[in-house]
Amino acid sequence: MPRAKIWGFLAVILSAGLFALSVFSFFIINNGDFSTFSSVDLNGLNSFTYYSAAIPVAVIALWVLATGFWIGWVILTIKVVPPMPEIVEKKDNSKIKAFFLCLITAALAALLVYGVYIRSFWSLAVPALVISAVILGAIFWVGMAIITTRATLPVNKK
């Protein structure tokens, strides 16, 4: 088997395995009882220990939310006149959607900051789960592409 394909298989197995592990740890190991997580007490941790984990996770999550807010804000505030108003047939309600995008991202950001402040387990777990899912998803997808890509043309049986 070519070396590239081996790397592809490894990427798929590793990313799928790690993702399955995180799903198992969150949803299966406790038989779907999420109250166990809510009772996790992070207040017992030394502040330095807590924030050394909380700040990096929160910064990445806030960056993503800020990007979402900024996109909404740009769409909401930019003044762009369509070239020929009469050729625009579809009604564009993107400004309304952009307003809600701003509202939701701002609310989520506020919730995250509050959650980190009161040391809620979920304020760290949800962003960490989402971020790792995105990265593992990317690795999985590339691995699949490497495995399924045909590097040479198929043999012409005729």
Binding site: I71, I75, I78, V80, V81, P82, P83, V88, K90, D92, S94, K97, A98, L101
Partner: peptide, 10 residues
Amino acid sequence: LMGNRGLWDK
């Protein structure tokens, strides 16, 4: 943006 229609395109 002038040519974009809808939130996703923008």
